[in-house]
Write a protein that binds this DNA or RNA. Structure first.
Lengths: 150, 150
DNA sequence: ACGAAAAGCTAAACATGTTAATAACAGTGC
DNA sequence: GCACTGTTATTAACATGTTTAGCTTTTCGT
């Protein structure tokens, strides 16, 4: 018979479950950053999008979604919010009119400049606490996992 | 002056950004599982909760939230859904009447039995493709990250 | 040039993430 | 017994995740 205990023990406890371990780790990393951003009324995703836009010189939503790791429907709403807040500008591409060109505004630049240092500090602190080597090893393994099973 | 390029280069590219690497890795792992579960009309979170409940012998929401890595407001809605679907039962604790006791139903057991094997297979396949050692090393590093910066 | 297929984006619907506020109950000190 | 405080769980409000459908524009084959 299909004894319940047989199946239970073949699955990892939550600490050894990869999906949950990834969740917890992400929570640990993003917690402090979220706290920082709430002071300027930005979500973690809005900040990610704003930074991708700032690093480019005019970029379309598809490219933003790819770099910020967001699905297009989510991005659509985020761009609407950022537009309302006056942090980005949107413009139709004159050549391919399906496409939009997103740019950061002066107000957007200002917000980034005001928070980028603290953002970097948080990342640096995590890397130091974990140790440079282990931090880099973790990144390597995560990237490996992402490239697996095409 | 605050040259823009100075700040840009101190932040990692998306591949070397820990938050984004964690996102992508999670997406890669959960994709196949989500596909499996959509056939039985369960979300990834509902499945996680159902399994935690099944592994216990009566458990309260706070404990479920902790083990399934969910916030209580999310869990409240998920338990309502699972209750509507008849997969769990809820009961007030007779001793401490703030507390609830959640149990899995026969229908819930049936769904788990019908899908647990495929679920295990997906995890196993990922571990094999990545290599046992690297897989375990990744889990160790993720757990380390979670324990850091108390 | 024309119609089918594809690309870029948006809308809608439902589920969860996140924070703040609230209700209901339990324990504590007085 | 009563106010005080902490715990458990829910609700509300807003933002995002996820899937499906839809619209507009372009590209391609013929």
């Amino acid at each position: 018979m299909g004894d319940k205990r047989d199946m239970k023990n073949r699955l990892p406890s939550t600490a050894r479950s990869l999906p949950i371990a990834l969740l917890r780790a992400r929570e640990r990393v993003m917690g402090p950053i979220r706290k920082l951003l709430s002071d300027v009324d930005l979500t973690e995703q809005q900040w990610r999008v704003l930074r991708v836009v700032q690093e480019s010189d005019g970029i379309d939503p598809t490219e933003i979604a790819d770099q910020a790791c967001l699905l297009l429907p989510s991005l659509t709403r985020i761009l609407q919010k950022l537009d309302e807040k006056g942090l980005i500008s949107r413009e139709r591409d004159k050549v391919d009119r399906r496409r939009q060109i997103i740019r950061i505004t002066a107000a957007g630049e200002k917000i980034i400049e005001a928070n980028i240092a603290a953002s970097i500090a948080i990342v640096d602190r995590t890397r130091e606490k974990m140790g440079e080597e282990r931090y880099e090893a973790l990144l390597d393994l995560l990237n490996d996992l992402d490239e697996i099973e095409l």
